[in-house]
Simulated scan of single mutants.
Amino acid sequence: MKGSIMLDKRLGYGLALVFLLVAPHFAYPLFLMTVLCFALFACALNLIMGFAGMVSFGHAAFFGGSAYIAGYVLASYGWPFEVGMLAGTAAGALMGMIVGVLAARRTGIYFAMITLALAQMMYFIYLKAPFTGGEDGLQAIPRGKLLGIWSLKDDITYYYVLLTYCLLGWALIVRTVHSHYGQVLRAIKENEARALSLGYDVTRYKLLAFVISAALSGLAGSLKAVAIGVATLTDVQWTMSGLVLLMVMVGGMKTFVGPAVGALVIITLQIELDNFGHYLADVTQIDWFSRIGVSIPMVTGLIFIASVLLFREGIVGSLKASRHRLQRKGARHHG
């Protein structure tokens, strides 16, 4: 049965990869790039939230802050695209190190509140810093050329480059969780006191996970800033931290693809809700539906409540649980 499950996983991953490769030829590339960036962002948060038990309310600081850094070095200094991504990722890791050193020794709500407070401090720094453009944002961020040869101005070309970066980031998360280090992280999540009694440096393990998560969040923010050509304060606000937290919970914590599914659901909702509202208004002749597009926070909140009540393990987590129940019933029946 374990071999069958592994075969199903590989088949699922293969089909998903094929879909991602052909998707830009059938869907709007910029929409797909936005989904991929938030998918990587959500998976990065899930690394510490789902597998290490650390709930961060301040990951927007790494996502948006790195977008500013990458955008600034690309727009002002004309650095190569790869160096810009490296600068954004390094900035995320550095910010994660600073926040992690101050927060890693805390647990539960205390950890969450420290990350939120430090993220808000960073928000006001970005608001006043001269290189960020303040409320106007950092604009006209160039895509440049890949390896100084291939132009990234074409959306489909940049999509495949972005997809490669996101898949590499996702692969790093999977490898980290499946490593010995990842098993220790899970042990810390399940019983931190026992892990400490076994001689593990719990704080060091948690800090490293937080830095990896922050670095990948920074990479996601850098890729998004270059994709749309602008970095704004929206990406560093506390609401962005709440949004990515929602993506993880809707898709499913403790899963590798759940946060990506949650990102797809939430981003699609944000973009298509207004169109869907107008469609309902035309069909039902109820004018109220045409104004549903301005109620995205309310609808998002309702989805969060519904996911908590109906899908406590998220979409992917609930599907996996249902599949396991069916497999157990089948095994008992054949037995």
Rank of each mutant, 00 (worst) to 15 (best):
I315Y: 00
L127Q: 14
K254Q: 15
T268I: 04
A321Y: 04
Y159N: 12
G133K: 02
F51V: 10
G100V: 08
I266C: 04
G71S: 07
I267A: 10
Y13Q: 03
Q285C: 05
G12Y: 06
G251V: 05
A104N: 04
A44G: 10
R194Q: 12
G317A: 05
F51Y: 15
K2E: 11
T132I: 01
I149P: 05
M247A: 02
L138C: 00
D282L: 13
Y279V: 09
L326D: 00
L147A: 12
P142K: 01
V248M: 02
G199W: 01
L302T: 09
F19T: 06
A60T: 07
G3P: 12
A39C: 14
F57Y: 09
Y158R: 05
M54Y: 10
L36W: 03
A231C: 09
R323I: 02
L216C: 05
A140L: 11
C37W: 00
V299E: 02
M97A: 10
T232W: 05
G277A: 02
G148M: 03
Y181H: 13
T157A: 11
K329T: 10
S56D: 09
I149D: 04
Y181Q: 13
D154S: 14
V257I: 13
R312E: 15
T234I: 08
D274V: 12
D155A: 14
Y159P: 14
G71V: 02
F304L: 11
K254W: 06
I188A: 01
I305V: 15
A16S: 14
R186N: 14
T239A: 06
P142W: 00
I212L: 15
S76N: 14
G218K: 04
K2G: 15
M247Y: 01
I296G: 00
T300W: 02
A231W: 01
L147G: 07
M54S: 08
S56Q: 06
A119V: 14
T232M: 12
T268D: 06
L11W: 01
V184C: 12
Y123H: 05
R10F: 13
Y165D: 02
C166L: 03
